[in-house]
Write a protein that binds this DNA or RNA. Sequence first.
DNA 1: TTGTAGGCGTTATCAT
DNA 2: ATGATAACGCCTACAA
Lengths: 335, 335
Amino acid sequence: MSKVGIRDVAKLAGVSTGTVSRVLNDHPSVTKDVRARVEGIIKDLGYLPDPSARSMRSKVSRLIGIVIPDLTNPFFSELVQSAEQAAANHGYNIIVMTSLDHAAKEADRIRQLTSRKVDGIILVPSNDFHTIKLPKGLPIVVVDRLMPGYSGIASDHRNGVRLGVEHLLKLGHRRIGFISGPGDSVPANDRLRGYLDAMEQADGTKMAGPPLIAEAAFDYESGRSAGNYLLARARNERPTAIFASSDQQAIGCMRAAHDLGIPIPAALSIVGFDGIPLASMTTPRLTTVKQPIQDVAAAAVAVLLNKRTAPALDNPILFPCEVLEGETTAPPQPD
Amino acid sequence: MSKVGIRDVAKLAGVSTGTVSRVLNDHPSVTKDVRARVEGIIKDLGYLPDPSARSMRSKVSRLIGIVIPDLTNPFFSELVQSAEQAAANHGYNIIVMTSLDHAAKEADRIRQLTSRKVDGIILVPSNDFHTIKLPKGLPIVVVDRLMPGYSGIASDHRNGVRLGVEHLLKLGHRRIGFISGPGDSVPANDRLRGYLDAMEQADGTKMAGPPLIAEAAFDYESGRSAGNYLLARARNERPTAIFASSDQQAIGCMRAAHDLGIPIPAALSIVGFDGIPLASMTTPRLTTVKQPIQDVAAAAVAVLLNKRTAPALDNPILFPCEVLEGETTAPPQPD
DNA sequence: TTGTAGGCGTTATCAT
DNA sequence: ATGATAACGCCTACAA
């Protein structure tokens, strides 16, 4: 029951270690019966190839690194979970690392992964990412927060937001507020453009009045104060609906409305973005635009495993979002 | 700029590869200046030791596996994140795996980790865990859902719940309902005992009337129906406060109360358990018992790295919980 | 304290 | 299609 190696298998199967190795690696040139015999012995002996030895020789670690800003964020944790499942299906494992949105830590983590000789990295860049550079020669796929110069995969934020805003427009809303993400965030700007797309196509949007866009971080508290800002006005100037760039913002905004005594959805419709589980746990349930996180994760893994061709540098793979109707949206009340 | 190895360093530093290796591994018997010189060269050359070669020879992978039921659960994602930070501080990295609470998948993942030769495993067993066996010889620390026969680390659920219930008792509540976790879950039973501890110590708890305990899964929907069950009674038989075994249950219960027109905290106090970020995002903010997840994670890592002695098999390390007062608790109304 | 050399378990090259 | 054998890059006795 001590360490059983490839030679033990070879000896018992009456073949050479080379053949066993070929069986292990699905090399085509192995007879069916030899393969069967060897596989039998492998199972009998409970032989497990040593990944270190393997990787030392073959330069393949079957390890994928994933670096995200914050695992506590449900969006990212779902991303990691999906990636883990996808990778495991191909015999790959995932090393997770969190940068805590700290560029220095992020750089350090990427360095660690490089020296670990992972076969590829899935990266969600921290917000002040521009300060670091990525090692060339190691496949990296940037996810969600796309960056020029790297292969990127994400959901189609812009179009997703457009869908959500159009949902509000169809209900009859015209004064639709928008809580934007941080101005230096790529996806935040994509989402903002989606809002503008929808509003420009609609009628009656060029009215006067106070601005309908508030910039905020993606978190709950920021959403709340942005909501306060947008809602603290005379009723006929106040938006009848608000689209928030994240579910957490939307929930913060719900809280703000609640504190101001504005009933949802009677006097205010709210739509969030992300589709995290939390969205269905609010009272009332949040209407939101769901990102296809699983698709994104699976595609990222597929690219790194060469099961799918990498996207061109400035032509990311985008997956469509979908409106998930909850209970926070209704036709507007007359002024 | 091609692959720089230990010999390149050795040559440039004018020493042997053995010495370089010793420098790399902080071996004590290396002169200060030799060490300095070698380290200089290492930095100059940007030399990074090959972890595969290293681990093949030394049998140490500097890798820790962590297997949890579900990364989407905020409790577990915080656990993983904390573990990652703790491990990184010691030059270790984390391989995450999710069992999706599926025993077969869990067994498979543990097998993968074993063959990866990780230096240790942090395991949160899936609920039907008893069906699989753990490999001996590999350090494993069981976290949160303790199991007899393995070193365990967790927060002190029983005492934590007691604190939470005592908080309600101090406010004057006597009819305190309890939403329990699944009956086959170890922590669920610990929590239940904490509730019983507190209630037995209090006065006036042995009244007649319908049962005050409802068993449910830990999730939102289960909490909601358990809440409905406990609250669908005449006002003077209905609990004036409910302690839920998880924050998600508590939030589901809030929803149930809301649907029944029972104001919180005026007519019903609610306390949750876990202290996930979500708890502070509800309206009103949930009062909850916070688990010291970071402490648990750090301790688990420390045990695996031999920075701390492992707990005895049936004497787990427990960390104390803490009541986080929100806005869902108030003195009871008179009947 | 430092150098030398063997071998860790596998894969890849070259024959056969 | 299979076998023999030399690396892969490093650690660790052992020797000096």
